[in-house]
Design a protein around this nucleic acid. Structure first.
Lengths: 160, 160
DNA sequence: CAAACAATTTAGCCTTGGCTAACAATCTTC
DNA sequence: GAAGATTGTTAGCCAAGGCTAAATTGTTTG
């Protein structure tokens, strides 16, 4: 939890006009903490998800492909692969294609599912495809499981 | 734009079964670039938005309040304030409360609006309040104007 | 009005995730 | 099978955004 407890700056909030009142400090703090935590895993998940997709659709995942698709230098990818390795998410022999560990596969699967739920939801909502893709990429890591479930239900009910 | 042009790793994609096929490289790259760009401004916007909210609701914005509400150390806030100052978004005399510049106010207003649209949308969708708040905080910076407009329309049509 | 407490700032550290440039390995092609 | 192109790695740089600890300034109160 937070190491930065509330001191006596702010008076206790009645939280009456829930409309645009400030949320209570603890809740507010939790919102930001949740976002910060999401950011830590976000990039990792994106890599793992992309590697999984490349393996599915191409049969192999090369660093160069990742660099192209992420619009990032090969050096950056190389460094990142090392981290993924240390985290036990991918296996890689130097100068060879990448593979996901068991754990990596699980993460890829979860990410892929989440991504698809958000993407299909946005389309069901009426967002055009290319906008939906961009927004989904950004949103996917910030949608809670609860909201995700609601999105999925919505999508099923609004299939054309 | 991207300095990392596609080379000859991947064959050209026909992009037929749009379902879960990989998007074309350029589009895929743009998705990730958009997310990276959003991340750069995200924190700045959160600070400015919070400062604006504190000014609205409390009449002043103290560094300590920001630290408490963001669950972050005062040192971190102090450093950030300096950045906001350099960016011309806030004015601050040392050891005194903060204020937003004209530009800062504009940014705060935009952020607040965007935040509220997402929050109300999630509630209209059926997400409970505290989940909606957390998700909105993370999502707001990744929702395009197009999608935002659609969310707003949806919310208006589903008011209870 | 001085002491104690609260708030702010500064200095200095760490990790992440970018980059470029130089080097190493692999693959392709003649 | 060697040359040249492509791919991958390493080294070293930078900025952002966290942190702690220590110094400084403001405020409150006995």
């Amino acid at each position: 939890m937070s190491d930065y407890p509330q001191q006596h700056s702010e008076p206790a909030t009645a939280y009456h006009k829930s409309g645009d009142a400030l949320p209570p400090v603890e809740q507010h703090a939790q919102q930001y903490e949740t976002v910060r935590n999401a950011h830590e895993t976000e990039l990792i998940e994106d890599y793992v998800e992309l590697i999984g997709d490349l393996l599915r659709h191409r049969g192999e995942a090369r660093a160069a492909d990742i660099a192209n698709r992420m619009a990032v230098s090969q050096a950056t990818v190389s460094k990142m692969i090392r981290r993924l390795n240390e985290l036990g998410l991918v296996t890689s022999k130097p100068y060879r294609s990448l593979f996901l560990t068991e754990e990596g596969q699980k993460m890829a699967e979860i990410s892929r599912t989440r991504h698809n739920v958000v993407l299909h939801f946005l389309r069901a909502l009426g967002v055009d495809d290319s906008t939906a893709r961009i927004d989904a990429e950004g949103m996917e890591h910030h949608v809670s499981d609860k909201t995700l479930a609601i999105m999925q239900r919505f999508t099923e009910q609004h299939q054309s």
